[in-house]
Design a protein around this nucleic acid. Structure first.
Lengths: 343, 343
DNA sequence: GTTGTGTATCGAAACGTTTCGATATTGGGC
DNA sequence: GCCCAATATCGAAACGTTTCGATACACAAC
């Protein structure tokens, strides 16, 4: 009932050629006459032959696997952000005949937490998704394993990066609010140490500068410990407590925006009549909350797909350049932003 | 800079033993004296040796990988349901030193869509997550590949199943509404061909029967094409159009409940004052919508973890029994359900 | 003293590939 | 008519493991 899988030897025998010739045909290498090639291919067909990946990996260097590393804390977040990135990677990988080995790691580096697939040499390269300890990246570089980073940028380790254009995104969000007539636009960023958030803030400032408007620094809040819903909630309450008037709020991601929304609602502030709200990421949730959230769309699947493409270039061409791939974001206007009303 | 990784030969040489002895030590097999064992382990330590997985897979039968198959259409759904299942599996897998090879397949079987990791023999077993074409399962069985199913049950193929107790869940939801005093409780199920939905409906009926109350069949709606937000919306509108009065609605999953919520709101029906609403799955969204949705919690991570455990039993013990593992659901009461008010 | 059994160690084969020579066979250029 | 390069094919080695005998030594049982 479970017939032994056929091997390249079976193919060779049936085609009446040497194993090495069959191998050449299968890999389109060297010189093989048209006739033998045909015979081999026929045998492959008849025997339903598929090369054994382990054997291939053993002799050659390629395993056909790509490791996808994401911090535990990120992957299980409310918004399936990295799931979508992963999905994009997986889809792209399938086109190139690669498989994805997924693993999560603790956020901060732990000595023995390095994914086993790296020490056991069962991946050709690695994609690091999102923020994680720099040491992870350092280890990868040290071992000479091809790697790229998506949606983050290590400070101390230089690796190719695939990211959404956060500066541009910050600009789009802010310019949207400015063009609606808002002038007092608060910026709600969590941990300003995160490069993406810093970039979004730069975009925020650029939008103001381009219009020759001076930013009121008191409206920039970037002192929460994290970037989750709770941080958005707390940050907004802190902001309200300062009594600084504002007619719009740009939260550095949707999770924080949702927290902000709750805080504002609780204070009897209507969205968007009293305060316009714009988020970042355009997670699915944006569409299901009330009011629907205006947000900067991040093409998550595309991030993942691009990451794989760049990684493959590193693997196959041995390219070692530290490239920086930027993906364009897009502003999605929904119900949470409008012209300023009475405050 | 990139030192060749050490092999078992290096270990053997350094320990002054034969390769085969080193292998015995590493696998805790056969007879090895305490002294040699110590020497070998020291050499392993000193050389930072890690066995090469490909070589192992080639000779032995174990690859140390588990395939996780989920239908494309499901994985990219709004709610990260299967992501959490996957997360549970991944976590459990790490404890047992297995890796997860993820792949998505088209919902309905296509001839050449069988994951490559199966044909290439790079997994020891497979977890099928959620509904997908029966042919996939049939192929697996035919090839004699250990497999289990989580959150679904194939009709024509017999495989071990890991599932939430849907009957119990349906019962809990309905009993909750009954105990609040509701009597006219609508059931909103999408595609009734799905075994989970059918089971939830059974639970619904049981709750009524236990109280000796007759179900009004006109309140059971299970004729939408799918189980998404849009189906919930349409189904609810159809239900409203029948003019059948009801004071509560049990949607067979949260996505449909959210669609229902929108439809009800649009008709000026207040939740929960006019109609109580209960969903199923307890996706994160439940907590972020207004009002917060009462739902039946499905321990998704646990489903994934259990699936792995059962699969490992099949792989390692060769157990071929068609088991049926049921996980207990739990009712989470939030704001969307209350005693019946004026209708 | 022979036989048997449990302990200990090792060499070699095997797993399914790819790749490196080795060896033929052409045919064109001279 | 000879040489060289291009074409074609093959056998064997190599990749890093595990596992299967083979061998050897104790020690107990008869």
């Amino acid at each position: 009932m479970k017939p032994r899988r056929s091997t390249i030897k079976d193919v060779a025998r049936r085609a009446g050629v040497a194993v090495s010739t069959a191998s050449l045909v299968l890999n389109s290498k060297g010189y093989v006459s048209a006739e033998l090639r045909r015979k081999v291919l026929r045998a492959v067909e008849e025997l339903d032959y598929v090369p054994n990946r382990s054997a291939r990996a053993l002799v050659g260097k390629s395993t056909g696997n790509i490791g996808f590393i994401v911090a535990q804390e990120h992957f299980s977040k409310v918004e399936p952000f990295y799931t979508k990135v992963l999905l994009g990677t997986e889809f792209e990988a399938r086109q190139h005949d690669y498989y994805i080995l997924l693993t999560t790691v603790p956020f901060s580096y732990r000595a023995n937490a390095l994914p086993r697939f790296i020490t056991e040499q069962s991946v050709d390269g690695v994609i690091c998704a999102g923020r994680m300890g720099d040491r992870y990246a350092a280890e990868l570089v040290e071992r000479g394993i091809p790697a790229v980073v998506v949606d983050y940028g290590f400070k101390t380790v230089r690796l190719p990066v695939i990211n959404v254009d956060n500066v541009r995104g910050g600009f789009l969000a802010t310019e949207h609010l400015l063009s609606l007539g808002h002038r007092r636009i608060a910026f709600l960023g969590g941990d300003a140490g995160h490069p993406s958030i810093a970039s979004r803030l730069i975009g925020y400032r650029e939008a103001f500068r381009e219009r020759g408007i001076v930013v009121d620094e008191r409206l920039i809040r970037a002192d929460e410990p994290g970037t989750g819903t709770a941080d958005g909630y707390n940050g907004t309450r802190n902001l309200l407590r300062t009594k600084e008037p504002f007619t719009a709020l740009f939260a550095c991601n949707d999770a924080m925006a949702i927290g902000a929304l709750r805080a504002l609602k609780e204070s009897g502030i209507h969205i968007p009549l009293n305060v316009s709200l714009v988020g970042f990421d355009n997670i699915d949730l944006c569409f299901h909350i009330d009011p629907r959230l205006t947000s900067v769309h991040v093409p998550k699947e595309e991030l993942g797909a691009q990451a794989l493409k760049v990684l493959l270039a590193v693997i196959e061409k041995g390219s070692t350049a530290v490239t920086n791939t930027l993906i364009d974001p897009e502003l999605i206007v929904r119900e949470s932003s409008s012209r300023p009303g009475r405050t």
